[in-house]
Computed example of a mutant assay.
Amino acid sequence: MPPIYKPTSGPEDWKQFLAKPDLHWKTGYSAKSLAYCWEGADGLPSEVATAIRNQWGAEPEPLLIIPEYKVPLPGGATDSQNDAFMFCRIGAQTAAVMIEGKVNEPFGPSIGEWFKQPSPGKIERLQHLCTLLGVSYPPAPELRYQLFHRSASAIIEADRFKADLAIMIVHSFSRTRAWHEDFAAFTAELGAPGETGGLPRAISVPGRPFHLGWVTGDAEYLTR
């Protein structure tokens, strides 16, 4: 398909871009909560804007936001389908930002589960992800595969857009920070603190600065 996008008229427009709309579009789940939160924001959700402002001391200006953004990866036909992609200005810099929405959904299979009896395509893909993120191959089996390809998506698109920064944000609406321990284990592997609300730099990633963090959305969007 050609890279042509049209503006949304409201949060319900996000449903059509889901891989399985009838399964994933439910009140209290991440896809719908994220859509209503981002569509209802004046610019950016306050928790996202605050995390960026605290890290760089400048007000973020969203230039482009695309729901359900696919990033091709080597080693197979399956893309990394990110919940949202944002290209923004942060002061004098630009940033490619991937957003991963969560409520109580896990980060999918672990590396050990996904990489069991790996095909040549999976080997190629995982080697590529590890190279982008600057971590040893193969990585620890308990780490979550989804966090690898979501983070790589930000780095890949930052390169394509010639952005100064690559950022991956987990935008969680969980009241109990469900699955935060998996996120913290992943950020530790990349040499970045996994605290909530911050966007520390991952020191393992070579080249362009890559930052990642976890922010918590308003509970009101769990009822939309």
Rank of each mutant, 00 (worst) to 15 (best):
L199R: 09
A84C: 08
G134R: 04
R150Y: 15
F87P: 01
I155S: 06
I99W: 00
N82W: 09
R208Q: 01
E100H: 10
D182H: 14
T131N: 07
T216P: 02
Q127N: 08
A192I: 07
R201Y: 07
A95S: 12
I123F: 06
P109Q: 12
S172N: 02
F87N: 08
G213N: 15
N104I: 07
A166W: 12
I167Y: 00
E181T: 11
D159I: 02
A152D: 01
Q93W: 15
V135N: 05
R175C: 01
F173R: 01
L190M: 06
D83S: 03
Q117N: 15
P200I: 15
V103T: 08
G217S: 00
I111E: 07
S110R: 15
G101E: 13
D83N: 05
R89K: 14
G112V: 09
F173D: 09
H180I: 02
I99G: 00
F107L: 03
V205G: 01
S136H: 11
E189L: 15
L165C: 03
E181Q: 10
S174G: 02
V97M: 11
P209V: 12
A163I: 01
A163F: 00
G197E: 09
T187P: 11
A84P: 03
A140D: 12
L133A: 04
G217R: 00
K162A: 13
L126D: 00
V103F: 08
V205Y: 02
A140Y: 09
D218H: 13
E195T: 15
L212P: 11
D182C: 02
G101Y: 05
G213P: 11
G207Q: 13
T216N: 14
R160K: 14
M86R: 00
E157L: 10
N104F: 11
P120C: 05
Q81A: 12
L129Q: 08
S204Q: 12
A84L: 05
F115D: 03
T131F: 06
D218M: 08
F173T: 01
E105R: 15
R175T: 10
A152W: 01
A152N: 02
K162Y: 07
R175L: 10
T196H: 08
W214T: 00
C130R: 07
F85M: 14
W179T: 05
S151P: 03
I155A: 04
D182E: 14
D182I: 00
S151V: 03
L212W: 06
D159K: 06
S172D: 03
Y221W: 06
T196Q: 09
A178C: 01
F85R: 08
P209I: 13
P209C: 13
I155W: 06
I123W: 07
P120V: 02
A202Q: 10
G108R: 10
P206S: 10
L165Y: 13
L126R: 02
L147I: 05
P138D: 08
R150A: 13
H211R: 05
Q93I: 03
I99E: 03
Y221T: 01
P209Q: 12
Y137T: 09
G101V: 02
L133I: 10
G191T: 09
R125Q: 09
D83Y: 01
T216S: 13
F173Q: 07
A140Q: 14
H211T: 04
I156S: 03
